[in-house]
Write a protein that binds this DNA or RNA. Structure first.
Length: 364
DNA sequence: CCTCCACCGGAAAGCCGGGTCA
DNA sequence: TGACCCGGCTTTCCGGTGGAGG
């Protein structure tokens, strides 16, 4: 590429490009001025937290909802307004935000709270009680925290329903107006992003990702309009990335399980049940000199794979013939093969044909 | 209506590699 | 150094259970 060509690329980015005005508006951690279709939740959260303004104790509150339904952003939004209001009235109020899902355990939640108060604490090694003491010390003059942070029961709750296609459209529209240069974004493309994300549990994060990726695709191919075909391509890309990411991070036994399901599916064209999968799994383990896990554990792993979307596993009853999970592969088998071929440990198992599979082979 | 299959999935406890603290 | 803690992964134990077949 010539220097002029390179120069052009840089210049284009400096000027914001021909598609984007500000792509940061499409990031999911961007805080917009308003949060459409979350008025109800904002009000609820606000009224629960309001007593903090007068130093009264506030109730615990639980927010339920799938990813991309606005839990994080609504919480941050309300905390921000609360702090502003306190400042306006010259009242001392501090808030701290800890994402418990990311923290994962009691210990880590309290450890994060300590850190948010500027107290460094070891990431492990202390008793939870000891940690809580340190947290109280860090709070010092402030009121002592309700020990119920330790229990997982709140007194209040707010539910975040998945966004509908129309609601997602409103969210996207608002951000797109500022994120894109005028006339760049096709309305059909916007609707498609909303519809696709609505089909996928009404996930606003997904909707924003689709829109951003679609625009990047258009930009890269030097097109001046973001259209439906770009969104479809973005959908492919986002999904593909998700799958390869998921597959590449799977631990050994989950990989062997996935291969087991795949081989059963190849041998016969119907879905398999836990018992069959476990049988094949054991044989593959033997072939690879790996100590097999128990069926109880395998059952749990299958559920995890189902949640990740790599498998489809649902409980069914065959009446007289018992109750079990029906299991199907949730991704294309060539994705699995491509990913696992990189892995020394399981590569050999991809081609291995266990007898327990042959037994299930359907005769033509 | 009852039985009984082939599992399900909760609870508890163990193991292990990481750590703290006195 | 030894007692103790955490988190994750796993095993063990075991009380369910939807519904076809009797």
């Amino acid at each position: 590429m010539s220097h002029q060509g390179l120069d052009l690329i840089f210049e284009r980015v400096l000027s914001g490009g021909e598609v984007f005005r500000d792509r940061n508006l499409l990031r999911h951690d961007y805080m917009p001025a308003t949060l459409p279709h979350r008025e109800e939740q904002i009000k609820r959260l606000g009224s629960v937290l309001a007593p903090a303004l007068t130093k009264d104790r506030v109730s615990n509150l639980f927010a339920y909802g799938k990813t991309g339904t606005g839990k994080t952003i609504v919480t941050k939004f309300v905390l921000d307004r609360l702090k502003r209001k306190a400042r306006e009235h010259g009242r001392a109020l501090d808030t701290s935000y800890v994402n418990c899902r990311l923290s994962g355990t009691n210990y880590r939640v309290i450890a994060d709270l300590c850190r948010s108060l500027g107290r460094e604490v070891p990431f492990t090694g202390l008793a939870v009680g000891e940690l809580l003491d340190r947290f109280r010390n860090a709070l010092q003059s402030r009121d002592f925290l309700d020990p119920r942070v330790l229990s997982s029961l709140g007194e209040e709750e707010v539910v975040f329903k998945p966004y509908s296609s129309d609601e997602l459209y409103d969210i996207l529209k608002e951000r797109a107006q500022l994120a894109f240069r005028s006339g760049v974004l096709d309305q059909g493309a916007l609707h498609l992003c909303a519809a696709l994300a609505a089909g996928e549990h009404g996930d606003a994060r997904r909707a924003l990702d689709l829109l951003r990726v679609a625009a990047e695709i258009a930009e890269r191919s030097r097109e001046l309009k973001v259209e439906e075909n770009h969104v479809r391509e973005a959908q492919q890309k986002v999904e593909h990335d998700r799958v390869t990411e998921a597959l590449s991070s799977l631990p050994l036994h989950s990989r062997i399980l996935l291969i087991s399901v795949m081989q059963l599916e190849n041998a016969r064209k119907e879905s398999s049940v836990t018992g069959d999968v476990y049988e094949v799994y054991r044989e593959l383990c033997a072939a690879g000199s790996v100590e097999p896990l128990t069926q109880r554990r395998v059952s749990g792993l299958l559920n995890e794979l189902d949640i990740m979307g790599v498998l489809n596993a649902r409980v069914v009853s065959f009446g007289r013939y018992g109750r079990t999970k029906k299991i199907r592969l949730g991704v294309e088998s060539r994705s699995v093969t491509a990913s696992f071929n990189q892995d020394e440990m399981v590569r050999g198992l991809l081609g291995y044909a266990p007898r327990s599979v042959l037994k299930h082979q359907t005769n033509l």
